[in-house]
């Protein structure tokens, strides 16, 4: 089945853009987060230009992305450790001498 991407008109940092994507809701949500990031930077860094604010916003988002990746790795490691403990627990129940 072919998913038809459609054109989505958005405004990022005061600039109108037409994007194409399969998940319009997700795209709009991401655009909203980028605009919020830029607006927050404009309030704290009033003397900076729009391209600079856009770069800082992109840097913050990338940093957040790596935080999410690290957290995901930690979660996967945690689940694996718990599964190993469960396996050992079941092994003991299976092999331990009966009273």
């Amino acid at each position: 089945m072919t998913i038809m991407s459609k054109a989505i008109r958005v405004n990022i940092g005061g600039k109108d853009l037409t994007l194409r994507g399969d998940n319009e809701e997700r795209i709009k949500k991401s655009v909203r987060e980028v605009n919020l990031q830029i607006q927050a930077l404009q309030q704290s860094l009033r003397e900076q230009s729009t391209p600079t604010l856009s770069l800082l916003a992109a840097l913050n988002i990338a940093e957040r992305y790596h935080d999410a990746l690290d957290q995901n790795s930690q979660d996967v490691r945690f689940v694996n450790e718990e599964l190993d403990k469960m396996t050992q627990y079941l092994e003991r129940a299976w092999r331990q001498p009966l009273p």
Binding site: Q37, N60, F78
Partner: peptide, 28 residues
């Protein structure tokens, strides 16, 4: 469970809909 950074420790708390709250919910 692996440690997660507190919201105040994040470099920029600028995202919409409290992403850290979502992460904490997923963690729970």
């Amino acid at each position: 469970m692996g440690p997660r950074n507190l919201p105040q420790e994040q470099p920029q708390q600028l995202f919409e809909d409290a992403p850290d709250a979502q992460a904490q919910k997923a963690q729970a």
